[in-house]
Design a binder for these strands. Structure first.
Lengths: 219, 219
DNA sequence: TTCTATTTGTTAATTTTTTGTCATAGTATT
DNA sequence: AATACTATGACAAAAAATTAACAAATAGAA
C-alpha cells in the first residue's frame, strides 16, 4: 500500500486534477492513455505524470500506457474517496449555504450530518434536508454523533472562539473558509484552507503584473 | 519598481498572508515588527520572510525591524489592490451569489459591475444592488463597458461555451470556480482557480492518510 | 515468430525553493 | 560619545521539486 510513504504536498495537490481528467476520459469511453497524451491534455510534463503516479505504484504498462478506468479508480482510492467521513457545517451564511448546496459531498468522501449557526433567524431553516441547529447544541451533538470534520464558514471575529469549541469537542479536521489561520493556533489538527480573499488578491497581482510595462508612457 | 522581476509563484502566494497578518498587527496598534516575531506568529521561517520581502525592496531597517503600517501598505500596492478592475459575475447560482455577497471586492482591487445568468428565473433578480442580466446581453455589455475580469461560476457543462464567448468578447482574466481547466484551452489568459472539489478531496486525502496505520488490526 | 514501435519505471541532472550564516548598519543605553 | 545589542540584506548551502535520459518490457505489425 502507498500510505506513510510521506508523499509531498505538490504531488497530492495534483491528484484531484488527474482524477478529474481521467474521469472525463472514462466518460468518453477512452480505454487507455499514455503519459504523453495526458501531458498534452493537462499541461504537465509526461515525466512529471509518470513520476507522480509512481509514488503510489506502477499502474502502467510499458509499450501500452495506463488503463483509464482502473487508474481512475485507483486515484479515487488513494484520495480516500471511498470513505464516508461525517462532516458538520459551521456557519449558515451565504457562503456556508452555497458550499452546502453546491458540493456533492458523497462523491468526495464526506456526508453532511448537521449545520450550526448562532443566528436565531437561521436556526430551524432547512438546507439540503438538514435543519439548521443552534450553535449552543454543538458540543451535545458531537458527543452523540461521530463527527470527523468541520466545514468552517464563520466570520473572522467568531472564528477563534468557535474553533476552540470544536477542538475541545474533538473535531480536529477542518475545511477552513474563514479568514483565520487555524493551523497557527493548534498543531495537532488537519486543515485544508480555502482563502477566497487571498485567491482574489493573487488574481489582482497577476493582472497588475501582466499590465505593467516599464516603458509605458500612456496616460 | 518591483515589476517584471519575475517573482516566483510561491512568493506571490504568500503575499496575501503577509498582508493579512500585517493588517491585524496594524489594527492592534503595533508599530514595528522583526522578521523573527513575524516568523513566530505566521509559522514561516524568519529567513524566508526576509527573503520574500526583499524580492520587492528593502523595507526593513537593521537593528529595528519592519515598520508595520508602511509595509502593510507596500504589500497592498505590490498586490495591486489600489487598482479598481471591473469584474462581471457569470452564473448567479448558489455559489456565484454567495461569492458576490461575501466578498469585499473594493478591498481587493475589484468592482462588481454586472451579473449574468442564462436562467430566466434569475434574470431581473437583484444581488448586491445589481440586477441580474440575461447572458444573451453579455457581448453587448462588454462592448459598452470596460470589463477587466470575469468571476466564472458556471456549471461544467456550460463552461466551455461561455468561456469561449467571454474570450471572444475580450475578457481574458478569470477567477475560475468552475470544474473546468480554462488555462488548458487558452494560452493568453490569466486564471486564478478556486477548485472546491479538489480542495475537499485533498482534505479527504489528508484525513485518510493520518488515520492509516500499517499495523492496525482493528475492525 | 521476429522485429520495430512505444512507453513505462527508474535513475540522474537540473532547476527551484527553502534554510542557514554572517558582515554590516542602525538602535538604544549608559 | 562610546558600546553593546539587534536585526536586516545578501550570499551560501541544503533540500525539494521538476525535467531529462535511458534501459527494460510489451504491443502490434510483418
Amino acid at each position: 500500500m502507498h500510505r506513510n510513504k510521506n508523499i509531498s504536498a505538490p504531488v497530492i495537490k495534483r491528484l484531484p486534477r488527474y482524477y478529474r481528467f481521467l474521469g472525463e476520459l472514462r466518460d468518453k469511453g477512452v480505454i487507455r492513455i499514455s503519459s504523453r497524451e495526458l501531458s498534452d491534455k493537462m499541461g504537465f510534463t509526461a515525466s512529471q505524470i509518470r513520476q507522480d503516479l509512481n509514488c503510489f505504484g506502477g499502474f502502467g504498462q510499458q509499450g501500452y500506457g495506463y488503463p483509464v478506468e482502473s487508474l481512475y479508480k485507483e486515484i479515487g482510492h488513494i484520495l480516500g474517496l471511498d470513505h464516508t467521513y461525517n462532516a458538520i457545517l459551521i456557519g449558515a451564511g451565504n457562503l456556508g449555504k452555497a458550499v452546502a448546496m453546491h458540493m456533492s459531498f458523497e462523491k468526495r468522501g464526506f456526508r453532511l450530518t448537521a449545520i450550526f449557526d448562532n443566528d436565531p433567524e437561521k436556526v430551524g431553516t432547512v438546507i439540503r434536508d438538514i435543519s439548521v441547529s443552534d450553535l449552543d447544541s454543538l458540543e451535545q451533538f458531537c458527543l452523540e454523533n461521530k463527527t470527523d470534520a468541520a466545514i468552517f464558514c464563520v466570520p473572522k471575529g467568531a472564528a477563534h472562539e468557535i474553533a476552540d469549541r470544536l477542538y475541545r469537542a474533538g473535531v480536529k479536521n477542518f475545511w477552513n473558509f474563514s479568514h483565520y489561520d487555524l493551523s497557527v493556533h493548534y498543531d495537532d489538527i488537519i486543515v485544508e484552507n480555502v482563502h477566497l480573499n487571498d485567491s482574489l488578491m493573487i488574481l489582482c497581482y497577476k493582472i497588475s503584473d501582466a499590465n505593467y510595462f516599464p516603458d509605458d508612457t500612456s496616460a
